[in-house]
């Protein structure tokens, strides 16, 4: 599943991030019920001008829709910090 990170990065590039960090925390959750489905656990930090003026809900919705089917296939859990450049 290590190529999942590359696919996530590729899709999120669409949001023109100034900063993009994805931690693969799957190993921390190996063996728990959700991990059996094969989806990974990830922690995402993303800074993009696209988030300026958007609510927290709208930012996460944008990320979920950008990741598309990954949310129901390769990604089991995703922590998100979505910031606009002026919030750093």
């Amino acid at each position: 599943m290590s190529d999942t990170l590359a696919i996530m990065r590729d899709r999120l590039a669409e949001l023109a991030p100034e900063h993009l960090d994805i931690e693969d925390e799957s190993a921390l959750h190996a063996g728990h019920a959700g991990a059996r489905s094969g989806g990974g656990h990830y922690q995402l930090t993303i800074v993009s001008a696209r988030f300026t003026g958007l609510s927290r809900l709208a930012r996460q919705r944008l990320i979920y829709s950008t990741l598309g089917d990954l949310m129901s296939t390769r990604i089991h859990a995703l922590g998100i910090r979505a910031l606009s450049p002026e919030e750093i």
């Binding site: 927290r56 809900l57 996460q60 919705r61 979920y64 859990a77 998100i80």
Partner: peptide
């Protein structure tokens, strides 16, 4: 129209998941 659990609702309004709750 939100793909993950947990989900918090206050007074009928969807507030968000655990990241939004934390922030």
């Amino acid at each position: 129209n939100w793909p993950t659990i947990p989900q918090l609702y206050v007074n009928g309004e969807f507030i968000g998941g655990s990241d939004i709750m934390t922030e």
